[in-house]
Write a protein that binds this DNA or RNA. Sequence first.
DNA 1: ACAATATGTCACAATATAGTGACATGAAGA
DNA 2: TCTTCATGTCACTATATTGTGACATATTGT
Lengths: 128, 128
Amino acid sequence: MKTPATEDDRVWRALSDGRRREMLDRLADTPMTTGAIVEAFAPLCRTGVMKHLEVLVAAELVVVRWQGRVRWNHFNPVPIDRISRRWIDGRRRKMSSALRRLKDVVELSLDPDETVEPIKPVKPERMK
Amino acid sequence: MKTPATEDDRVWRALSDGRRREMLDRLADTPMTTGAIVEAFAPLCRTGVMKHLEVLVAAELVVVRWQGRVRWNHFNPVPIDRISRRWIDGRRRKMSSALRRLKDVVELSLDPDETVEPIKPVKPERMK
DNA sequence: ACAATATGTCACAATATAGTGACATGAAGA
DNA sequence: TCTTCATGTCACTATATTGTGACATATTGT
């Protein structure tokens, strides 16, 4: 990504990592201190956990709250709701027509001139 | 990601890049040849475009169909629908209760012992 | 046969990301 | 005060991702 990174970009990026999705999943059940998260994600080291949390906080998927020396990490569902609306719900129509097109195309693939498997060009091993 | 990468992982990864999301957005309107995509995404070079397409194909978000020497790239909405169901719809309940918890916590933050802003520990500039 | 076209592959550089260990600091408790 | 605890920051390595140019190959049209 060379553009400045929008809010949505940060959310998608944050969600692209399975560990972070798992962290969110746990935090959606209940807020946790950083230490508790570290235990839950062993053998990943504490610094590693904190880096993931940093990404989640930057995306506003996690909200931090302090209680003395303890840091509580809270899941914030708003950003996910936002990208879900913008990207999923806002495209339902497009998607269903795309699906229809795709089905047509795949079914037509018995036509000798057209293939779904790219067995046509160059040496078969190269043009996979 | 050190684990083998599941189907869902590949989808999330693919969606984490804004360019790829934009490609999908266009392909959702209409299938395109690789050349047409390259034109649309100038000044990104052809090899760059193909790498993005490769990621999208690996995630099954794009289905390829050959017609002579021309490669048609079709958007496949199924994987997005899948992660949407598993991750968004399947967590609605969790999310709304998390939101309630979060609101409570944020409102309570007038309590002198508890803060949302991490202004407590260490030197203020360091413990951001 | 030949040239132009559309695509695939390779080798490489630049940058981003994930992860670790060492060290530092404020809070809480004895 | 002194010790432990929870956390933050820095320096560094390893790996992944992104991007480019050069070259190769099949298809199409002349």
